[in-house]
Simulated scan of single mutants.
Amino acid sequence: MNKIISFYFGRVLMLGRTNSGKSTLLNQLIGKKISITSHKINTTCFNISGIYNHKNYQIEYIDTPGLIENNNIIYNSLFSKNNFDAILLVLDQNKWNYIEEKIIKIINNIIIFIPIIIVINKIDKIYNKTILLSHINFIKKKIFFTDVVMISAKKKLYINDINHIIFKILPNKKHVFPKNYITNQSKKLIISEIIREYIIRYIHNELPYKLKIKIESFIENPKTLSKNINVLFYVKKLSQKKILIGKNANMIKFIINRSQNSIEKFFNKKVTLKIWIKLK
């Protein structure tokens, strides 16, 4: 007699201040880089979903933009749906100010009967770990949570503890995504985000993080199975165009080379990437 296997699926919302390490954590949880990371504030501009599969468990982790001034509209629209099964509140070490207070206020006002897991990130930067105990006691007075995990997303410390905690609270439900899925983002969005990361990382503050990147064409060669990708950057100023191109076109060549390597790694296919820069 065949044993009936139960399947479990749930959606987990990741919240926290900008640069708390949510994107790095998402990449580690999924086991592949799907969300760009940078020290620049508010690198993540929209929700990014990562799909984690393990045996009969499937989790959709949703990375959200970090909370900054006037960002309440984003969170209110998310919370109004209440279509998730748990919240990961990602905190940067023992940092706490008005940003965390804002997030806590929204959660306490809107979210009811949804498990909240506190994730204290970047513990590798804390020399005296005993201060974390007093910090956890402080958080207890602010919000009710079901569990707490202390991790280092960058150093890959205790990441799997989060998945195991989520397993215990997932509802008995059919899987939404195919087993080989790691993200529900489109191929074009993934490519544009990979390119945007390298621009942000190497050009620093000279360009805004909300870059207009358009994938003009995404064609697969049936003979070689390679992909030909043509991309357009739109900039507002001639000075920005010059920065992107760089002296003797060195900067744009560097960005193309790095981006192309990352895109090839993601899709496991040979890629030919071409980039044009235009004034908007």
Rank of each mutant, 00 (worst) to 15 (best):
D161V: 15
I190V: 11
D147P: 03
Q185V: 02
T183H: 00
P171K: 09
N205A: 14
L157R: 14
I200D: 04
F145T: 03
I199Q: 02
I213V: 12
I136W: 01
S192F: 00
I131F: 06
L170V: 02
I169E: 05
N137E: 15
P208N: 05
I159C: 05
I165M: 06
S152C: 04
I203F: 01
K129R: 14
Y181H: 13
R196F: 01
N172T: 14
K173M: 11
R196E: 07
H164M: 11
Y209L: 10
I123C: 13
M150G: 06
I165N: 02
I123K: 12
I136Q: 08
R196Q: 09
K179V: 13
K188H: 08
K210A: 10
S186A: 05
K187I: 04
P171L: 02
I199W: 00
F144S: 14
P178K: 05
I194M: 07
I199P: 00
I131M: 10
H135Y: 15
Y158H: 13
P171I: 07
F177D: 11
N172M: 11
T146N: 12
I159N: 03
K187D: 08
K188T: 05
I182S: 09
P178S: 12
A153G: 09
N184C: 08
I165V: 07
E197S: 01
L132M: 11
I203G: 09
A153Q: 00
H135A: 07
L207I: 14
Y127F: 15
F145R: 02
H164W: 09
S192K: 03
F177T: 10
P178L: 06
I199D: 04
N163S: 14
I123F: 03
H164D: 15
E206C: 09
I143Y: 06
H175Y: 02
E206N: 13
Y181F: 13
F145L: 03
I162F: 02
K156F: 12
I166N: 01
I131K: 08
K210P: 06
N205W: 05
V148G: 05
I195E: 07
N172V: 11
H175V: 03
Y181G: 09
N128P: 03
I162N: 02
I194T: 03
T130M: 12
V176I: 13
S134I: 06
F144K: 15
Y127E: 15
Y202Q: 06
F144E: 11
T130P: 04
I190S: 04
L189A: 05
I159R: 03
L157K: 11
I195Y: 01
T130S: 14
L170W: 02
E197M: 01
L211I: 01
T130A: 14
H175E: 13
I203W: 04
I200S: 02
Y209G: 11
H204R: 15
L132K: 07
I182C: 10
K173E: 13
N163C: 08
I139L: 14
F177L: 13
D147K: 10
N180P: 09
F145M: 02
K173W: 01
E193K: 05
Y198T: 12
R196D: 10
L133I: 15
I139N: 11
I182F: 06
L207A: 07
N163T: 11
N205M: 13
T183A: 04
K210G: 07
K140N: 08
V149D: 03
D124A: 12
